[in-house]
Amino acid sequence: MMDSYFWLLSLLDSMFRLATPLLLAALAGFFSERAGVVDIGLEGKMLMAAFAAAATAAFTGSAGLGLLAAIGASLVLALLHGFACITHRGNQVVSGVALNITAMGLTAVLGNAWFEMGGRTPNLPATARFGELTLPLAETLRGIPVLGSFYYEVISGHNILVYLAMALVPLTAWVAYRTRFGLRLRAVGENPAAVDTAGISVPALRYQAVLIAGLLCGIAGAYLSTAQGAGFQTNMTAGKGYLALAALILGKWKPVPTLLACLLFAAADALQTRLQGVVMPGLGEVPVQLIEALPYLLTVLLLAGFMGKAIPPKASGRPYVKER
């Protein structure tokens, strides 16, 4: 009994670790898409940021500087996305795809040239990474059955970015629904003409949203290479950006449901390694690939309306053109 409880605790523990980059990227997507700018480029921004963080941390030995570099790199891509989609009213999906492919190539080329390790960056020492924090009293309470061990194993012992990501969920909800900025953000994603005729600049608002998305993707990328991992590997995002997008859709473009979707995907990911070769009663051996594909299947089913309807912000994907 105790064994399976600890198995569950360790599962939950890895769920939070795996959910963090998804959540950060999904919240990035939240800001961008609620403002009416579709962001397929979460993947590319995260990848670029992961590389910038690892490279900077490798050169300077500082995880903090790495984080700053990650945010900077991601912001550059976000600005480019804004330039194409907001200033030049380009196709948002095409722009996102372009950024993803560019990031994939650029990180590999630069990584190879700078570190000559086949695209990887050197392994970062613990000092150049975000370390795990032991929360107050965690050691003391550890002995208490059930709750104490839950606190020690699941709540405590993550790095700062995990806590930041979790705290960003209520913060995002508050910003979106309780502030002037949030009101305008949601309005510009639904009906930009209403925002324009209210005397508010549509491009300025959308640029702000896109830059917030850049900031959050930057943190997500830094998490991958300098907190969860200890260095950059070629294409290390491996579809997490798309998965985050799927979580955002599954969460119907709302912060808390998006968090739940991220946790679900992360739990599936955590289970995957644990279920390898496990025979389920009645089902036989569950193919690992099925669990791997589960988030994508769920998203397709949801989008097809088999699990309730996901209605995107009305103006998303459409460049704003003043009409006569």
Partner: peptide, 28 residues
């Protein structure tokens, strides 16, 4: 100006529509 095609955010309440651009402070 009242435009021929209304400049309203349909998913907002009437009050939220009135507020838009005229919030008077960072908090709602």
């Amino acid at each position: 100006m009242v435009h021929q095609h209304f400049m309203l955010v349909e998913t907002f309440t009437v009050l939220e529509n009135l507020l838009l651009g005229h919030e008077g402070g960072p908090l709602l």
